[in-house]
Design a protein around this nucleic acid. Sequence first.
RNA 1: GCCCCCGUAGCUCAGUAGGAUAGAGCAACGGAUUCCUAAUCCGUAGGUCGCGCGUUCGAAUCGCGCCGGGGGUACCA
Length: 534
Amino acid sequence: MNNSTALRTLLNHEVRSVLGLDESLEIQWTVPKRKDQGDLSTNIAMIEAKKRGTIPRDLASSIIESIDWGKLNVERAEVAGPGFVNIWIAPSYYHTIVDQILSEKGNYGQGEAVPDQKILVEFVSANPTGPLNVVSARAAAIGDSIVRILRKAGFEAVSEFYVNDAGRQVRRLGESVLARAKGEEVPEDGYHGEDVVSLAENLFPSGLNGSELAEVVGEQAAHLNVAHQKKVLDEYGVSFDRWFHESELHRDDTPKHTLEQLSAVGAVYEKDGATWFKGTEYGDVEDRVIITQEGRPTYLLPDIAYHLSKAERGATTAIDLLGPDHHDYVGRMHAALNALGKENFLEVIIVQQVHLLEGGEKVKMSKRAGKLVTLEELVEEVGKDVARYFFLQRRTSSHLDFDLDLAKEESERNPVFYVQYAHTRICGILRKEDCPDPYSADLSTLIELEEIELIKHLEQFAETIQRAAEAREPQRLASYLHDLATIFHKFYSAHRVIGVDAGLSAARAALSEASRIVLAEGLNLLGVSAPEKM
RNA sequence: GCCCCCGUAGCUCAGUAGGAUAGAGCAACGGAUUCCUAAUCCGUAGGUCGCGCGUUCGAAUCGCGCCGGGGGUACCA
C-alpha cells in the first residue's frame, strides 16, 4: 500500500467511526482546486446529512470536533462552503511521498494486482491489403498506451492484432497485384495504391508466367503487407503479444462450431436461402446474415468465433478499438455475445477520425485513389514521440485535427518538448558535479510552497493511473504529465537546487529525482521517450 | 429515417465516479536570464461551457427535448 492510500485509509477509519458508517461505504477525498480550501476535502457530511435530514455544516463540525487530527498528521481542519470538511496536512507527510518514490523508483504508482481477470485489448487490426493509415496510427498509440496503463494499474492485460487474412479482400488484393504486374487497369473494387505496384515488383521481379492464381498471389501479398505493418509498428514502439490470423480459425473449423452454438440457443434462422442471426432479439437494430445464399460465411461469423476464442483463451474482458467506419459493427457483436451468454464481456472504443492539417488546410486523403498518408510517412515526418503524444493528448472519442506544421516544429510551441524538457532539465541538474546525492537527503527542509505543490502532484500519480486505466483514457495521463512539467518548471524558476545550503540542496535534488522518476515512468506509459539531453 | 461521436476563450482542446471563483497550449500584448539548458518563468486580455426544461443543497459533468457539425447505416471487412 502506498503512503497516499494509507493516509486515506486512516482518515476514512476515523470518519466512519464518528458517523457510525460501515466499511463498505466509499468516502471521497479530493484535492481542492484552490489552496485556501486545504490539501484534501471530503463531501461526506453533505451526503450523510441528506440521508439523516440534518444540516450538512453541523455534521461537518461534529466530524471535525470528534477526531484527533494531530495523530493523523493533519495540522488544521475546518468546515467550508455548504459543508465540506477541508484539512491541511503537515509537510512531514509529503516528505514520506518523496521517500517512497525514491525507494520504489519506476515501480512507484504500480497498482496492486487485480485477481481473477485478464483484459485482452485488440487494436489496429488493419486489413492486410495495404499500409497503415493515420487512424491506425492513432489506434496504435492509444491501444498500446491503454495496455501499459492497465498493467501499471495492476490489471493483467494482453494486446492482440487480428489479421483478416481469409476474406475476399485477399483475393481482390491478388487481382490488383496481378493487374499491376501485367500493366493493366486495377479492377474497380481493387486496391489502387502505389504500394500495390511495389508488391507486384517484389513478387514478380521477372514478370508473370500466366499460371498465377489470384488467391495465391493475394496470400503472398498479404503476407508481405503484414510483415511490413509489423515492422512499421515496431519502429513506432508498438508490439503485440499476439498476431491472431483469421485463417487460424478456419483451419480449426471454429466458425462452424460458433454457428452450432448460435443454433443451439435458437439464435439463427433460414430466410431467402441465407442463414440469419436474430440480432434483434439480443439488442441489435436488425437481424444479420451470417451465411450467404452461396453458402459462404459473412465476416460476422468468424468475428464472433474470434471473440469467443478470446474468452476461451482466458480473457475476462475484451476491449476492441475500432475505426469510425466500423461503429455499426458494435451492436451486432454485442448481440451475438449476448446470445452466447457473454454479456458485458466486450467493450468497444471507437477511435475517431484524424484530419491532418498542413498550412491550415486539411490534407486530402482518399482511400479509393490510394492517396493516403501512412503511419510510416507520419513517423518519418514528425517522429515517433511527437506522433504518439499528439494522439494521446486528446480524447479517443473526439475527432482530431493533427497540425503537421506544429508537430514538425522543434520548438517551444510543440507541447511534447515541454514535458520532455522538464525531464531533461532535471537530468541536467543531477548530472552536475556539485549536485548532492539525492538518495541520502534529509527531506525535512522542504517547506516552500513550490516544493510542497510539486510533491502533492507527484502524490496524484497512482490515482491518475487508476482513473486512466478504469476509464481506458490515456489522455488523462498526458494531461497529468503536462501539469507535472508545469509545476516542476515553476519550482525550478523559484528555487535553486545547487548552490544553496548543503542540506537543502540535497533535499531539492531528492525532490528533483522523484519528479524525474515520475516523468520518465509516465512518458514510458505513453510510449514517449524521456531524453536525458535535448 | 435510424445509430454513433462532437459542440467549453479568436484557434486546437483538457476538465465527465456532480462539488466551492471553469483550465492549458497556440495566437495578441507587457515583463523576467551576471546564476542548475530561456525548448523556461511571471503578468494582461479573452467565456451566455450550443439552446431550453428537469433532477439536486450544488450541473460543463446526470435525464429529456431541440439546434449545429462530422461519421456510419452490405448476403464487404
